[in-house]
Nucleic acid binder design. Structure first.
Lengths: 211, 211
DNA sequence: CTGCTTATAAGGCAAGTGTCCAATAAGCGG
DNA sequence: CCGCTTATTGGACACTTGCCTTATAAGCAG
């Protein structure tokens, strides 16, 4: 039993479509961020979570950092697509569209501890990293534009009088309410239940844009 | 020049008062969190930033994690003390007191990228770590209580009519506005200048609590 | 000036990480 | 059924980290 260099490898794993594997890794990254925080989210740990060998990360992403960045991009893209899909088809009833937007923001899918936890990490990165900042900036612009569009529908349809505050201020405030409640929802899940967040947003919108 | 085991150590460093050194390390922690993110904030890096040997951390804190926690505690304590000192002495003029509170929240001292960046990390930790959650919870309660006190002064002094919304809702909204603007201020420093944040808070308060 | 306390430095060690790389087989086209 | 592409594995390496320990000297009491 001195030398047995044989039968060492065991690539039993089924071969997955490259696209599916990539998504596995992206999802595992979010999960790791939420479970272990940014400190514990290492390339090897992500692979462990995804159930693949640590060598595979390199095969799909140039390095763990890039994986993190792409996770951010993917998350932004998905969230924006979802929000647009939910609110835009209801342009005929602007108040309803806005309400649906709020519901989506606080939905299980986008206000889960996992997602918000990951989001906080990305915000953090955006301060010190150029590439993360670009993604963040782009997302903010697009999200703000969507919100603005919904609000403009309100006044354009003459369903609401011109706001008391300058339009830009009113939108900034509504946006702040959304962000603030979103964070708070994350911080302690029992304090402000989902339905109340939505109700508060509705109230704020009515206050800002209705008589 | 074969064997020179002599003259290796060089504890040239001046001896600092234990309290000052502790504060050095706490400050270095905040700085590291902002500069390198949670991932790069290691015990050794903090010591490097503080200009001391890596062995010293152990002498003041049981481990890097504990240092992080104490940094959080210190930050919370300082911020609450500051906010109270700024707003409470002006109970005679409730609107003014509230305004001073807003100004303090967005002051250079408490809305700096360093502070908010560190804060995001602590929020993240609060989800997965019991001890961080306790600090976070305690801070939220006290901060909320302070804000509530300021608002109650408003109505108690009959300087404002009873709010349109239930009191609890109005306070929740105002708090959300504060948090939301605070974060946004962090995310891109050129978008929403400090003065505008304060003005928006004032506007929100007037809207919620004045006729 | 001497000696004690203790703040400080720095080395060693095990564990974990990122990067690179060679070996292996899974699944498809022929 | 065979052979090529490539998804996948797992090891090697240098490096960093956290933890512990010992050696040193800074500053104060006497």
């Amino acid at each position: 039993m001195a030398s047995l260099p044989e039968q060492v490898r065991k690539p039993r794993a089924r071969r997955a479509s490259p696209l599916a594997r990539r998504e596995d890794l992206l999802a595992a990254t979010v999960s790791c961020l939420a479970r272990l925080g940014p400190h514990g989210t290492t390339g090897r740990e992500i692979c462990r979570q995804a159930g693949v060998s640590h060598g595979l990360l390199r095969h799909y992403f140039s390095n763990p950092d890039k994986l993190l960045l792409e996770t951010y991009e993917q998350l932004c893209e998905d969230m924006l697509a979802h929000l647009e899909a939910v609110a835009l088809p209801f342009a005929a009833n602007p108040w309803d569209a806005l309400h649906r937007y709020f519901v989506a923001v606080f939905s299980d899918e986008w206000a889960s501890p996992e997602i918000i936890g990951a989001w906080l990490v990305f915000w953090q990165q955006a301060r010190s990293r150029e590439d993360f900042a670009a993604v963040s900036h782009d997302f903010n612009l697009r999200q703000r534009a969507l919100l603005e569009q919904l609000v403009v529908q309100l006044t354009a349809a003459a369903m609401a009088p011109p706001p008391i505050l300058p339009m830009a201020d009113a939108i900034a405030l509504l946006s702040a309410v959304l962000d603030g409640l979103w964070i708070e929802y994350y911080l302690c899940d029992d304090r402000t239940p989902r339905a109340r967040c939505v109700a508060l947003c509705d109230a704020a919108a009515r206050m800002l844009f209705a008589a």
